[in-house]
Amino acid sequence: MNTLLDIKGLTVAMAGLGRPILDEVSLAVHDGEAVALVGESGSGKSVTARTALGLFPGGATVSGSVVVGGTEVVAAGPGDLRRVRTSVASMIFQDPRAGVNPVRRIGDFLTEPLRRIQGRSKAEATAQALELLGAVGMPDPPRHLRQFPHELSGGMLQRVMIAYALTADPRLLLCDEPTTALDVTTQAEIMAILGRLRRDRGLGILLITHDLDLAASVCDRVYVMYAGRIMEAAPSAALTSVPRHPYTRGLLGSAPPLTGPMPRLAPIPGAPLGLAEAVSGCPFAARCAHVVPGLCDATTPTLERHGDSQVACLRAAELIDETQGEGLR
């Protein structure tokens, strides 16, 4: 299997902060695979996704490796970066309205990159824009080409943004909270389109989201991130049926269920770790119910394999024995 995105030991740090923005992050997305990166605000999930386009926070020191479609983008030159961005990877964002020029028609918006970057003729570009709008499930592509952004709903505009991302004919689509600003029923539509693109075009997808249930239901594998580190990486089914990291378990226990018994929620105490706060040992130790003083705040756990999952927890092995047969969700 061809690896589209291969991040290894990526650390992004900036002077004046208490902890690195990203700390030893390793992550892979293969051809035609949907992978989710789940975390709360400040976990570094969006920063991680952006590194795949060679976008690093200004003034940051970067170590480790980010290989996109065979090209190393850490310390890459402008030519390599341009090639990655115009033919390998594309990105869509949370707020589709922020990404379009409100006074330009959808048609101009879509054909511009096709003509200027991909070098198509005007007729070719228009034909391809129509095809792309069809591919993202827009009901009437010829009419949409003449429309302005304000004439479209948020969900429709997000489809246009996906079409725009597809103008580069990418093999990897980075989706940064693509449905957070949209209605719940629209979310399903966008997810259906992404699923279809993945099937039809063999597109690899990296879905950034805060919603663990969404991630597990549409992706093959899930990475759970906290304070710039990967806490757990597992196939979706394994993650929700046997969550191994206390943080993953805490996240699952934080969302009230839609069916079945409704116990009192058991939230994770405290708040996510800010960038100004320094960490020693496990970054989750301060909020963890299973913390062992002297161990968890002294040693930084690394990802280790337990069953189908990889878990960064010093007590993973004992905790798994403890909860065995307890029937977590």
Binding site: L251, S254, A255, P256, L265, P272
Partner: peptide, 8 residues
Amino acid sequence: LDVSIQAQ
């Protein structure tokens, strides 16, 4: 709010 904070 973040998921864990929402529960609180």
